[in-house]
Computed example of a mutant assay.
Amino acid sequence: MIDAVDLFCGAGGLTAGMRQAGIEVHAGYDIEAQCRHAYEVNNQAVFVDQDVKSLSKEQLEAWYPRVDGRYRLLAGCAPCQPFSTYNQGRDTSADSKWPLLYHFARLIRELQPELVTMENVPDVTKHEVYDDFVKNLETQGYKVWAEPVACVEYGLPQLRRRHVLLASKLGPIKLIEPTHRDAPVSVQEMIGDLPRIAAGDCDPHDPMHRAATLTPINLQRILNSREGGTWRDWPPHLVADCHRKPSGKTYASVYGRMSRNKPSPTMTTLCYGFGNGRFGHYEQARALSLREAAILQSFPRNYEFMPPDRITFKAVGRMIGNAVPVRLGEVIGQSLMSHVRAYEQHLHQ
């Protein structure tokens, strides 16, 4: 019913979610060649290592079957660094990622797919390039729905907020209603049954279930950390120099354990490091394993990111943190499928 191409596809979070919703994703484009293995092995789609800036309408058209009753979807989640809170107040105009939304808009204008989706950080709406993107869609006859989404309300066990845009030439469209607004999924529900491992160890049955090593002082810090607490719970001799300064006393979210009965914090590219956020395991004396971080991003438990002998924390952490959560991709896919079914039903009345 819906055929899709995924621009800026990364390791395939959006593609995997849309496929779970029944959308046929034929290809993903990205310049991060390391993502090829994860994208192709798990998604039965082709990874194309090509810059979207050089992508043409003809190249995209080749992926869509010429069959009546099929609808074309162009999906794109341009890298969010220029729009992130971290860059508030910085001059990011020279960032090479900045024009990518304009190139996405160009490809929509040339291809004229029936359906479009875009996902980014909530602060993307504060930038002129986003306003231009929406105006371009509307002037071409697309009906646009665009709002911030609390992913935890859709069953993602993570306090992640994203801005989601859906656009259709078939008529008004919107995201499906929240599925877990009153029943958020907790960390323990998702990772509580994984085998216990120590810092620096790896589960012999899963090369992704590995935890980073801890320095002796960080091992003492996590042993003195309580679930859901902060570094303020430590004895004075363990407190880091940066937290002794007036400027560091407000940063309570680093060197923390998660709470087992709550959703996790947002998974970042450094989600495997105890000192990089509240990424300490709620019970064990270590940071999250790569597998646990991927599960909290709603990747299937058997999702393969790299060949086992090539896994590194930095490379896989980057893929996990930059990914569209699979569950959010599924919700986007379900919304698009529901929209097309309603359109078809209206046609045949």
Rank of each mutant, 00 (worst) to 15 (best):
G171L: 02
R109E: 11
Q59K: 14
I295A: 12
I173K: 10
P216Y: 00
G256I: 02
T85Q: 12
L73S: 14
E292D: 02
T230E: 10
K126Q: 13
I108D: 06
R210A: 01
K314Q: 12
I311C: 08
R70A: 13
V48S: 08
G17K: 03
V331G: 15
V5D: 14
N261G: 11
P207M: 05
H163G: 09
C77H: 11
P246Y: 07
A212F: 14
A240H: 07
P325F: 02
A167Q: 05
R260F: 05
R291K: 15
V25G: 05
Q334W: 13
V187M: 04
T117E: 11
E153S: 14
C242A: 14
A16I: 10
L115N: 09
S93I: 05
A294N: 08
R66H: 11
L270H: 13
Q59R: 15
F279I: 03
L7I: 02
F133M: 15
G155F: 04
V152D: 07
G200P: 15
M208L: 12
N261L: 10
R310N: 06
D182W: 09
A45V: 05
H339S: 13
A342E: 13
L166E: 10
S247Y: 04
V326T: 00
A75H: 04
V324Y: 01
V340R: 10
G192P: 13
A240R: 04
H237C: 01
I311F: 10
Q34A: 14
A45P: 01
T269G: 07
E330D: 05
G171T: 01
C80F: 03
V129F: 07
W98L: 11
Q50N: 11
C271T: 09
A315C: 08
P263C: 10
P236V: 00
A198N: 09
V316F: 02
K314L: 09
C9I: 01
S93W: 03
V152K: 09
R318Y: 07
I320H: 07
E177H: 05
V326Y: 00
A33S: 15
L347R: 15
V129T: 12
T117Y: 06
E227T: 11
T139E: 12
A183G: 03
G89Q: 01
R36F: 06
Q188A: 14
V144N: 01
Y251E: 01
A75S: 15
L170S: 04
P207Q: 12
R286N: 02
P307N: 11
A315T: 15
S259I: 12
A198S: 04
D30P: 02
T213N: 07
E61V: 08
V164A: 07
T266M: 03
R278V: 04
M190S: 13
D201S: 13
R90H: 15
T268S: 12
